[in-house]
Design a protein around this nucleic acid. Structure first.
Length: 425
RNA sequence: GGAGGCGUCGCCUAGUCCGGUCUAUGGCGCCCGCCUGCUAAGCGGGUUUGGGGCUACAACCCCAUCGCGAGUUCAAAUCUCGCCGCCUCCGCCA
């Protein structure tokens, strides 16, 4: 939820922000008129209620006819209060509804436009030239099969399309990647967390995933629970209804959790392999900090993401996502996209968003700064999403014989293993 | 899953039986001041959060807030119902 005062005091700024995302500004006028209605109804209700309370105090001491008169008056007042209260509730809901449908204001620096209007900030490394090396690279599906690392057939048999088993060296790779990510996070001062993957509607709603993204979310049949698509959801709700100690900020968490996505809108996209799957494990950085520090922290998160990709010795580019491709909650988003040789293009491996006070307003997390209580910001960033990291590693570091060299930094986490060798042709 | 107990403004706690001077008591902690060579002790004051009015996001006034929601009533921390959470015991289980 954006700051209501911005809508009230500077509606044009919100209109411009809506336009930048390619959205209608109709909601701004709806919010403004709802606010007027709301404030009028609050005043009306409170006036009635104040009168009711005052008269109510007189009743115990009153006697006889005086008491009867008071009771007669308060009886009608009681009905009026009830009515005014209902009107206030409705007005409040209208205001909240309008306000909640406004996405976070895109940062001035974020590029305008949609999905294809991103700006490449930097490119690290050069795509490996397999032609010069004299062999045609295998895709991760083939490499995963040869290494005995990824079992897609049985994944489909047991769970359906977009599921997989990680086996043998594949399973070891996941543990190694998680260990390496957690080690990096720990050294950077993050608190390590294992977060629940099932959450209540409040958490899902508060992080903005029940808006346009609702189609992508699994709901548990017969329960008021959702499967998270990222541990961001659990971590944003972690401090809900709390007032944090401002002096203790930033609070940095590195949370591991399985993630679940319906991929409802992606029929036909990435149907091969484990680029786009219904379930995967992920280590996510999640930070609570001050609004003033949020932008700098965003750069720090990007820095840790790059550090991790560097350790994996990958070629990648960093993009500045355009406003129309930001999630509901984000004011700015950077993606790190790794070069996937057999696709001949860069694919998203990590993503970091600055959500400013959008989520904390919805989830009621604030900070105490001396005598003041002020909103705080949340930011999130992927440290590693397992399947895509595995895809990039296998394809990037493959050899002509189907073996895959292990990036130096990953070797200690694989018992010193330097090369993953095929177990079948 | 079953039975019982509990949920009060940071923490602990009074109040709930028997509805109204509850504008929620006291202690701890914290903040300010006095005292003091410095500290401690002592003394005095302050200390839930959100919203509305008015405005400087001060002061002041008002409304809400006693786990959440609904109900009864002129009036609910207090009575009724539902839900949630925690604790104890039993059952089951990794």
């Amino acid at each position: 939820m954006i700051d209501p005062r911005i809508v009230r005091d500077d509606p044009d700024r919100v209109r411009a922000a809506q336009a930048k995302r390619g959205l209608s500004d109709e909601v701004v006028d709806r919010a403004l008129s709802a606010d007027t209605t709301r404030r009028a109804s609050i005043a009306a209700y409170e006036a009635k209620r104040a009168e009711q309370k005052q008269l109510g105090k007189l009743i115990p001491q009153a006697q006889g006819e005086e008491k009867q008169a008071l009771l007669a008056r308060t009886r009608t007042l009681s009905a009026e209060v009830k009515q005014a209260e209902a009107a206030q509730g409705a007005a409040e809901a209208g205001w909240q509804g309008a306000l909640r449908s406004i996405p976070n204001l895109a940062a001035d620096a974020a590029p305008a436009g949609g999905e294809d209007d991103f700006v490449v900030i930097e490119t690290i490394g050069t795509p490996r030239d397999f032609e010069a090396e004299g062999f045609t690279p295998r895709d991760h599906v083939e490499l995963g099969r040869m290494l005995g690392a990824i079992d897609l057939e049985r994944g489909a048999k047991v769970s359906g399309s977009r599921f997989y088993f990680l086996t043998g060296i594949g399973a070891q790779l996941e543990f190694a990647l998680v260990a390496m990510a957690m080690e990096l996070a720990r050294n950077a001062g993050f608190t390590q967390v294992i977060a629940p993957s099932l959450v209540k509607p409040r958490a899902m709603e508060g992080t903005g995933f029940l808006g346009q993204a609702a189609d992508d979310v699994y709901r548990i049949e017969g329960e008021d629970l959702y499967l998270v698509g990222t541990s961001e959801v659990a971590m944003a709700a972690y401090h809900s209804d709390e007032i944090l100690d401002g002096a203790a900020l930033p609070l940095r968490y590195a949370a591991f959790s399985p993630c679940f996505r319906k991929e409802a809108g992606s029929h036909g996209k990435d149907t091969k392999g484990i680029i786009r799957v219904h379930w995967f494990d992920k280590v996510e950085m999640f930070v609570y900090t001050t609004l003033e520090d949020a932008e700098a922290e965003h750069q720090r998160l990007l820095g840790w993401e790059k550090e991790f990709l560097d350790k994996l010795e990958l070629t990648y580019q960093v993009i500045d996502t355009a406003a129309g491709d930001l999630g509901l909650s984000a004011t700015r988003k950077f993606d790190c996209e790794a070069w996937i040789p057999t696709q001949g293009r860069y694919r998203e491996l990590t993503s970091t968003s600055n959500c400013t006070d959008f989520q904390t307003r919805r989830l009621d997390t604030r900070g105490r700064f001396g005598s003041q209580i002020r909103p705080v910001a949340t930011l999130n960033g992927t440290l590693t999403a397992i399947p895509r990291a595995i895809v990039a590693i296998l394809e990037t570091h493959q050899q002509a014989d189907g073996s895959v060299t292990v990036p130096l930094a990953l070797q200690p986490h694989l018992g010193g293993l330097q090369v993953m060798k095929p177990v079948r042709a």
